[in-house]
């Protein structure tokens, strides 16, 4: 695990020239979890995208300690957004294989099917991602987290679409990751359990 510290300082995002939320500050160290909450349209996704490098801040920004190297930080983080990043016409196994290889991780078929089994997709190795249910698609994308072994997890509404067992599993999964020295930044609009568990709780407010 990598011990970079993520600083978000006085950051604001905009949409159509108007700032979306009041400035946000956060220091996230490995071994900690931060949860971003807020109503619909409060800019949770925009904030997370900006942190992941898929958007930009209009005020303030992020930097990293000790060496302010964005690229090396990106190497140690993984982002799962609203669009899950699964190719509809590829099988689960192929999707996972691509995600691993593009991140520079060599895998064999056994590791990949183990990865799928961990998220409860055992027996779906050769199903097309298109044929999965919404919850299963979510599980497929979450299986990347376990396989890629990155320090920072950036998750946008990870509990949406998951059933009760899925939520429990993900919750345990995140707790385990934190206890092993990982860090997670996630958005969740109404998950009391994760709100209580969070080391940092950010409520996005109108500017």
């Amino acid at each position: 695990m990598q011990s970079t510290i993520l600083h978000i300082s006085h950051a604001q995002c905009q949409k159509g020239g108007e700032p979306l939320f009041a400035p946000v500050d956060l220091v996230l160290q490995p071994g900690e979890m931060a949860v971003v909450a807020g109503n619909n349209g409060s800019g949770k996704t925009t904030l997370l995208e900006a942190v992941a490098g898929l958007g930009s801040f209009c005020q303030g920004g992020i930097h990293f300690a000790p060496d302010n190297n964005r690229d090396s930080w990106l190497q140690h983080s993984h982002y799962i957004g609203h669009s899950l990043g699964n190719k509809a016409s590829l099988t689960c196994l192929e999707n996972l294989h691509f995600a691993a290889t593009i991140n520079g991780i060599r895998t064999n078929e056994q590791q990949l099917s183990d990865g799928l089994a961990q998220v409860g997709l055992h027996g779906y190795e050769y199903h097309y991602a298109n044929d999965l249910s919404a919850g299963q698609k979510k599980r497929l994308s979450l299986s990347r987290l376990l396989l890629l072994n990155k320090t920072f997890w950036l998750l946008d509404e990870p509990f949406v679409n998951l059933d009760q067992t899925g939520c429990d599993w993900l919750f345990d999964c995140i707790s385990k990751h934190i206890s092993q020295g990982g860090a997670a930044l996630l958005t969740a609009h109404d998950n009391k359990r994760i709100h209580q568990q969070a080391d940092h709780f950010i409520q996005l407010q109108r500017p």
Binding site: G53, L74, S77, G81, S83, N86, A88
Partner: peptide
């Protein structure tokens, strides 16, 4: 871009 797999390779350090 639409299915999100663009993020997979743009953020992978490639």
């Amino acid at each position: 871009y639409e299915d999100g797999s663009l993020a997979l390779y743009t953020l992978s350090g490639m």
